[in-house]
Design a protein around this nucleic acid. Structure first.
Lengths: 340, 340
DNA sequence: TTGTAGGCGTTATCAC
DNA sequence: GTGATAACGCCTACAA
């Protein structure tokens, strides 16, 4: 592997001058510049990035923590982040936490060991107290996840309000016994959504039944289990809010196999507006987040932080969402009769 | 940021000894070891990875090149790879090429500049001639993609045979005018699949109609376009092989909206056995690949190469696939009448 | 405009 | 067992 030294020798010049050419700095004669360029080509010289990193104390790399890339929401998130980051000349390391606290901390080590210049947390299982110390090692920005602190910037939608709206929609469609399937318990947005769900029930004087709360429902398979669970209840559940289109799709699928009619027997709301929610029969009512915009904003905020060494005040960017009303909750006839 | 020097000073020992403790080497008294551990904690010392990299000439990082993570096949691939790699202490950098030749080469630079120890190419648009020189800079393993060379190891299924089987299945179901929707033209497996498709037609004395070949169909939206395109043809197309479940799902969706009946009017085959192919109504016949196994094997092969500096002979691992026959091609009645 | 020299933080080599 | 010292490859005052 050729080094800067080799190039300098071959060109009959010093390392400094070569370095100047590499970094496009002024004060080099055209003539010598060409000589050096020639030497570089001849040797197939490429600057060694480890050396540069050590010298510059920067890695041009960002770690993105998320539960799993197979969840389409996070897939889209990281695809947009990688794209935007590469525009700024940054690389992205995928860090799948699988919602494990320890994994999350392990990956935060990357910041401490200076393997990355900054971290984006799109997955957040630990308490803030646990995360906070890592801020000393470098900037962290939250995306999707959020919490009550002003020590980090955040980019997200209002999950509590979104869950509230979705639940109210179910109620307005005539549902009165509504179940609630959440994602990973550890995570903070799960709590937010639950608060919104409960508030909606309270506002409409409906009871909150703990037995109808299903935890850790993450994917299609879990959705099928959720449906089975609902059928075992002695109460007739007529609506369900889930934190994931995948889970909702699993429910719709299982319902179809059992000859259950959606939305008439059971209305279903998902989350994230995945392709699948549109394609299912019936199509699934869901909450759409502006994923790409959020991803890009997050990268921009982080890149800004990394470039300017000085402390800046932290900002919170709350994006709008949209409740997309589809067939899985469209029970006009029932609603009509219920409200008349 | 505390350095090894600081720790040494605080512990009243030398950098060497500290280094020994960090790397769990022998020849350090328990007593001094503790002293050093104390000092490390007190200073919050963490070894600087850039320095380590420079010194050791290794990065413990792998670059995975793929078209896009939002394609569920690649999503699952990288999720499994990241998981397996982290078992071996390696990090994974996501490199989305979006099937662009230039992007692919840009990312291969990572190998040259020693930012990664090895590269996995799950996306391959350039000619082998173009890629080959990069082998000098470090090991490359192909996954999913493959070609006729013995200079790299490869992990994949037999796409030509899979496409052949799928097409034969369509023919056996009674289809006689079969369209063909491919993914990105640039890619090598696309060619393989096309060969299989053509071979099947030839074996059954069916003509290959170039006008029924649709290029660059990648996602659900493209699938909808494909359906529209098929309807514009003056021939009645009664079967279609697509290289993607997403595209197939788009077709099924568009067909339903047009009151078109699948499989009766049009039989559809997808690829990859994504969740969506099972959930659609009708469910979609598809080709299942052992994604996780392939991902793990790829990582293992690469890690082996990276660990042992000596040249090893390249290997090709061809995995079995399975044609999952579902509703989208189940036209028993038509077949019966056609074959009788 | 060009070159010299020191140091970024680690680890390996060789003495002691 | 422990420690001094020299790299790893690059950048950047500072000097010329």
């Amino acid at each position: 592997m050729a080094t800067i030294e080799d190039v300098a020798r071959l060109a009959g010049l010093s390392r400094t001058t070569v370095s100047r050419v590499i970094n496009d700095q002024p004060y080099v004669t055209e003539e010598k510049k060409e000589k050096i360029m020639d030497a570089m080509h001849q040797l197939g010289y490429v600057p060694n990035s480890s050396a540069r990193r050590l010298r510059s104390q920067r890695t041009e790399t960002i770690a993105v923590l998320l539960p799993r890339v197979t969840n389409p929401f996070f897939g889209h998130l990281i695809e947009a982040m990688e794209r935007e980051a590469s525009e700024f000349g940054y690389q992205v390391i995928v860090c799948q936490t699988h919602d494990k606290k320890q994994k999350e901390l392990d990956y935060l080590q990357l910041l401490k060991t200076k393997q990355v210049d900054g971290v984006i947390m799109a997955s957040l299982s630990n308490d803030w107290k646990t995360i906070e110390p890592y801020l000393e090692s470098g900037p962290i920005v939250l995306c999707n996840e959020y919490m009550e602190t002003d020590q980090v910037s955040m980019v997200h939608i209002d999950h509590r309000q979104a869950a509230y709206d979705a639940t109210v929609h179910l109620i307005e469609q005539g549902c009165s016994t509504i179940a609630y399937a959440t994602g990973s318990q550890e995570t903070h947005i799960t709590c937010e959504r639950k608060l919104g769900f409960q508030q909606a029930l309270a506002d409409f004087h409906l009871p909150f039944d703990e037995n109808l709360e299903i935890k850790d429902a993450l994917d299609v398979k879990d959705g099928q289990k959720v449906f089975a669970f609902l059928q075992q209840q002695n109460k007739k559940v007529d609506g369900i809010f889930t934190g994931s289109d995948e889970v909702a799709a699993g429910i719709v699928y299982a319902a179809a196999q059992s000859g259950f009619s959606i939305p008439e027997d059971l209305s279903v709301v998902g989350f994230d507006n995945q392709m699948i929610s549109l394609l299912m029969v019936p199509s699934i009512t869901t909450v759409q987040q502006p994923v790409a915009e959020m991803a890009m904003k997050t990268i921009q905020v982080l890149v800004n932080k990394m470039k300017s060494s000085q402390q800046q005040h932290e900002q919170r960017f709350v994006y709008p969402y949209e409740l997309l009303k589809r067939k899985s909750t469209e029970r006009i006839s029932l609603k009509e009769s219920a409200s008349s």
